[in-house]
Design a protein around this nucleic acid. Structure first.
Lengths: 243, 243
DNA sequence: CGCATGGTTGAGACCGTTCAAACGTTGTGG
DNA sequence: CCACAACGTTTGAACGGTCTCAACCATGCG
């Protein structure tokens, strides 16, 4: 299912853009990232890494994936979305088994990160900026996981969806993938349900309520936040990229 | 409020016991941990570290605390309990701001971990075992956070309480603080509510149901699991200390 | 055209919440 | 020792958010 091929232009620049938002990259960092590197493609809707398997160090450069856990009766909980620019198996810990499975939600392309991760591990001062950026990326992963706990435990359906949409928009904007207040949202309502801990039917009704309240527009895979400020107030949203 | 004082015997041994369950400690690791070290005491019910503050590296040696986040209208979500033997501000990342607040639930005593953390950071091969143990401890923190997401998002009230109780028992057993199937549970139902994402009243009713079903006994601060196997099946519980 | 996929709608049941009051326990001071 | 306050637990009643089940609709595609 993987079709390794040569680096496409633009893949590295997306990663540079993402990491530059997290720390100042040195010229040698950028050079390291811009070396041609294997790109792999995977189809959507596939569990590409089950729980407990050693993870490769890659960045996602296009498409959507998620971390998820399943219960035996079919219930599924999405822990976190993985968006373009995000690391897929990147940890600061010496490589361990994955703690959850990774599932593609659309076709995706990934970009090998092992050279960068070696540079980070070697603590080469020439790559201090890169190390810092990877570091902050991991901190954000953890922060989002905490946000997810609060979202599921202490927010209403309406607030959950608001909050999630604001997060997704902020993350897209951080890598230049937002078109103003709009982002592409190639997710079914069932996937949104698994992320918000709701039933599919209730997600549908909540979306309608948000539309009626003129907070969002959502059709044919494009989400537009009509009133981000109002939404942030309702959901008590705190931007991720603050610290 | 902190009363620094000299090391009490037994404090270090609790930590050694905890870390030994995670990796094989060398004699020099144990020596490092057994040096006298500052112990601090804090009263219960206090936010000892608010969100965004730099965290000290300490181990909890007695009492209960938790990581929590609050919403402005008073809703509170507990992210994770901190039990004796657990690290309080221990991360592998170079020290950052805390991502949530830490609140004591009972009187606690903490034990300075900075010497151990320096040894870990220095990558001294004489302390590889210690580093490995701290490492695994951080992995478990992350694993529990993921479990919490699934618990809140995709389990019923009944399953949530079962699952949480099993986790708390397992964690106590790992440091020798379980008395067979019993552990001390010095938590109010309100705290359990904040941990399980339920209302206090519903926690009360769920506990009664668990008692009626002869799964647990809970009185005067002691929880006994009457049928751990049955509970594990109901809640689809997977032991933390497996990998 | 016919099917597959995903979105929408309605009705009813259930799970969990809210509000309010009563009850037990524990610790404290008179 | 009693009275009382403070705190936590238990109970009842009513409400409402969310779920389930089932059917129906829209769209795209072979």
């Amino acid at each position: 299912m993987n079709k390794p091929r040569l680096d496409a232009p633009g893949a590295a620049s997306l990663i540079v853009r993402r990491l530059s938002a997290l720390a100042r990259l040195s010229p040698s960092d950028e050079a390291l990232l811009s070396q041609p590197r294997a790109i792999e493609e995977r189809p959507g809707g596939v569990e590409i890494y089950p729980e407990g398997v050693p993870l490769p160090a890659t960045w996602l450069i296009s498409g959507w994936a998620c971390r998820a856990r399943m219960l035996s009766d079919g219930r599924r909980q999405i822990l976190d979305f993985i968006l373009p620019g995000d690391g897929m198996g990147l940890t600061l810990r010496p490589r361990r088994r994955s703690l959850c499975s990774i599932v593609t939600l659309t076709n995706i392309r990934t970009f090998d990160a092992s050279a960068a991760m070696s540079a980070v591990a070697s603590e080469d001062p020439a790559h201090a900026g890169l190390a810092e950026a990877v570091n902050r990326g991991c901190t954000l992963d953890e922060k989002r996981l905490m946000e997810q706990v609060v979202r599921l435990g202490r927010r209403t359906a309406y607030e959950r969806v608001c909050h999630l949409f604001l997060e997704l928009h902020e993350r897209h904007a951080a890598v230049g993938l937002a078109d103003g207040a709009s982002i592409e949202l190639p997710l079914t309502q069932e996937v949104l349900a698994d992320a918000t801990g709701l039933s599919m039917v209730h997600v549908n009704r909540t979306l309608q309520q948000l539309r009626r309240d003129r907070l969002i527009e959502l059709k044919s895979g494009v989400l537009t936040l009509l009133d981000p400020t109002g939404m942030a107030e309702i959901a008590e949203y705190q931007p991720l990229y603050d610290t």
